[in-house]
Design a binder for these strands. Structure first.
Lengths: 109, 109
DNA sequence: AATATTAATCGTAATATTGCAATGAACAAA
DNA sequence: TTTGTTCATTGCAATATTACGATTAATATT
């Protein structure tokens, strides 16, 4: 059906999945890495840096912004994007908690 | 188009995205958490634990197995799944490296 | 052998995602 | 005011994902 049955899962599970989905596309991974690299804001040179069309980049930015991972400031005709460090830290804790589950005991397979 | 232009991104970016996509659905998050919780293997009680139909769970398991995050052992009529700890550790390092990018310097937004 | 149990696979429907051309909105510069 | 620049939005096509009923394959049990 293409639709996830979110009501059968916990809030935590759904939230982990939502953030993970944000990283589930290489373009968004690249955008975030580029924003980290420049540290300061970035405008539309993401379009030339990454090879996708402007509407496509804009759409990915919108998703990341909606999740709160980035912020955008209008500056004249250009828009300056950067990482939302507070939310990034929160997200990082959530995902890390999931990744750091205990795997010390022996498995049977 | 629904198809990602993976050729424009680095191997690392594509790999991060692939693993992240695995966690991008709450059912797979739930499956992995359950496998961690029981530590030992699990068979098809994932179906009753999580509320989805058997073919749906089977499909999610297939994806996780294909990525190498879990292993499956046939035991009689049932199949025993568990975390592939080696690959989990590798994946964790990759994702952690992405999440732990430096955010110490001040942003402009 | 006949039946039951468990899980994979197939086929299909519904929805989501990705990507871009075309267009629009906001502002700057001339 | 006109023109150019930058980015968002709209609309659409192609593909991917999610879910499940029906079936199949493999093994256990009787």
């Amino acid at each position: 059906m293409g639709v996830s049955k979110t009501e059968m899962f916990t809030d935590s599970q759904n939230e982990i999945a939502l953030f993970a989905k944000a990283f589930g596309h290489p373009a968004r991974v690249a955008i975030l890495q580029y924003l980290f690299k420049l540290n300061a804001c970035v405008c539309g040179d993401l379009v030339s840096e990454i090879g996708l069309a402007q509407p496509t980049i804009s759409q990915h930015l919108k998703e990341l912004k909606h999740l709160g991972l980035i912020k955008g400031n209008v500056e004249g005709t250009s828009v300056c994007y950067c990482i939302d460090t507070d939310n990034w830290t929160k997200m990082k804790k959530l995902i890390s908690g999931f990744l750091d589950q205990d795997i010390s005991k022996e498995n049977c397979c």
